[in-house]
Design a protein around this nucleic acid. Structure first.
Lengths: 198, 198
DNA sequence: AGTAGACTAAAACACAAATCGAGTCGAATG
DNA sequence: CATTCGACTCGATTTGTGTTTTAGTCTACT
């Protein structure tokens, strides 16, 4: 009994591993159930004994990816003592992991593109204006003594960070087709950040 | 001389206005140079006397859109006295404007979509885990006295805000095909935010 | 200077034919 | 009974094709 369940699971995870590899190499569209079956020297129908369909295979692969990724972040976080260092570790690791995934699944990333160039070009231009405005407001606040004194370079960095976050929200909005409903939350984040700037 | 320049500019801006309207209604692809010319009761060739091509028309329209949008934000900002209120006004207005644009150009937004659904679904799941981790770290910091006491609701809000920002950066990265090179800037922003949390 | 009609070349479209690939089924194997 | 597979279906995707649309040019008219 336990033997059977084990064997079943073994094959399942084998499928997941193989599928994952193929997805990495060829992307979602170019990987067929036939391909997956062949790399395991099995018939295509056999896959359907273990998974209800391609989507479920993909889902299983994604689940594993999520678990692995989240695990590696968690590990990094738990190395740290203080909450501050934990948070910092989280963000840094999270950033690394994002880049790593981007490089791991180039085919899948490529599948998702079209002609964003124009909008991007336009958006970039707007971002530059915006970034300067943010910087000016910051400098204004520093000059008036309302904000703590920050050196010019950090001021620049802050503006860049802020504008990038906004760009992220822009593109998020663009892709989703709706503005993320987090007005209040951002407000609270803003208040706390302000406490730090003052 | 000045008269001629004025007339030239007048027609140019007329073209821009008309093109803008058509882009709003029908999107980029479904708006032809012929269409634009017809709504002005002019020959198509005439457009090429004023603009080198469709792309330049689009660019001009975008320029105007940028100028208008930025102007409306700037106006809102300059109503405020303190730098803090200016910053806040900036973010809020910026948010409004984003949503407004989304509603103004639905056809153009629609043109830019494909099958993001799967990745989105997967991403959402990851976001939930991530959000909880952030919240837990925050609560950990509050319990230990390292962070200032924030009520649970605000803590939630902070976590949502942070995860949403990260989602934004995710999608940004996804669309751009590269992680935004602002590690240092984010670090500085992080430090300042921390000062506020403590 | 400003306009437009006729033109071209290339891209978009339409639609039929062929191909591919996800998913089913019943039979085979052990 | 658990597991595998070959043969099949059917809808989606791709391909080949001819046609239409459309960005952009050229020339000539005012």
């Amino acid at each position: 009994m336990t033997n059977k369940i084990n064997k079943n699971d073994q094959i399942k995870t084998d499928i997941i591993v193989k599928a994952r590899e193929l997805f990495k190499r060829f992307g979602l569209n170019k990987t067929t159930m036939e391909d997956i079956a062949q790399t395991m020297s099995k018939g295509k129908s056999t896959l359907y004994y273990y998974f209800s369909g391609k989507e479920e295979v993909l889902y299983a692969v994604a689940q594993k990816e999520i678990a692995d990724t989240f695990g590696s972040i968690l590990a990094e976080v738990e190395k740290q003592k203080s909450a501050q260092e934990r948070l910092r570790a989280f963000f840094l690791k999270r950033f690394d992991v994002l880049e790593e995934k981007l490089n791991t699944y180039p085919a899948m990333v490529r599948e998702q593109k079209k002609n964003i160039e124009i909008i991007h070009k336009i958006h970039l231009e707007f971002s530059l204006l915006e970034r300067n405005l943010i910087k000016e407001i910051l400098l204004y606040g520093i000059k008036s003594g309302e904000f703590a004194h920050i050196n010019k370079k950090d001021c620049d960095s802050l503006a860049i960070a802020a504008s990038t976050i906004l760009s992220g929200i822009d593109i998020y909005t663009f892709v989703e087709g709706t503005v993320p409903p987090i007005g209040d939350q951002l407000n609270i984040l803003f208040n706390i950040t302000m406490r730090g700037v003052k």
